[in-house]
Simulated assay, not measured.
Amino acid sequence: MTEKIGELATAASIRVAAAESLTGGQVCTALGATPGASDWFAGGVVAYTIETKNLVLGVPEDIDPCSAECARTMAAGVRDALEVDAAVATTGVGGPDPQDGHAPGTVFIGWARGPHAGAREFSFEGDDPERIVEATTHAALEMLAEVLEGASDVDDS
C-alpha cells in the first residue's frame, strides 16, 4: 500500500504527512520506510494526549479524543503545521479496556487534502491493542491512498 501512496503522491507532485495518536507512529514508520519517501513524505506528529493534540495540532481541549471531530482536526492540523497537500490522522481506543464510554476497537481516521477534511469511523473487533493498532495502521494507509486517488466515497464530514 505504501508504494501505491508513493506513486500517487509522486504523480500528483504532492507531499503527505500523518498525525497519530492510537497508532503511536506506526503510520509514519510505514510511510518513511517506503523507497523514495523523501520525495513525498514530509513527516508526522505523534500526539497521544489531548494536551499534545491541542498544543501541536489545534484540537480543542474539550473535544472527545475518540471522535470524528478529533480525527478531522488532527489531519487538518498536521496538514497545516507541515505545509503539505494531504494528511491522514488516527485516534481511538486500542484496548484492552473501554475508555470514556468507547469500546476497544472504536477508531476514527481523519483525512485532509487541500481545503477539505473529513473522518470515518471504524470498529475493529477484539480487545488486543496490538491487533487494533495494526488494523488501524492498515486502514489509515488505505484511506490515504483513497484521498490521493480522489475517491468519491471519501467525503467531507
Rank of each mutant, 00 (worst) to 15 (best):
S123A: 15
T73W: 01
G58A: 04
A76H: 04
D153G: 11
T10P: 00
A151W: 08
G32E: 05
E51Q: 15
R113E: 02
E61P: 10
V133Y: 03
V56I: 12
E134M: 09
V107G: 01
E125M: 12
L148Y: 02
A11V: 04
T49F: 06
Y48Q: 09
T10D: 12
A42Q: 13
W111Y: 04
H138G: 08
P98G: 07
P65H: 13
S123Q: 15
T10N: 10
P115V: 11
D97L: 12
A68T: 10
H102G: 08
G101Q: 13
R113C: 06
A139Q: 10
G94M: 07
A145D: 05
A103I: 11
V78I: 10
E121C: 13
S13V: 03
A81D: 00
A81Q: 03
W111R: 06
E125G: 13
R79N: 04
G36I: 08
R15V: 03
E51F: 14
E20I: 01
I109E: 00
V56F: 11
A117K: 09
P129Q: 13
A117G: 09
I50N: 12
L57D: 01
S21G: 08
A87W: 00
H138S: 13
M1I: 11
L31T: 00
I63D: 14
E69C: 08
T29L: 14
V46T: 12
G36H: 08
V147Y: 05
S13N: 12
P115S: 14
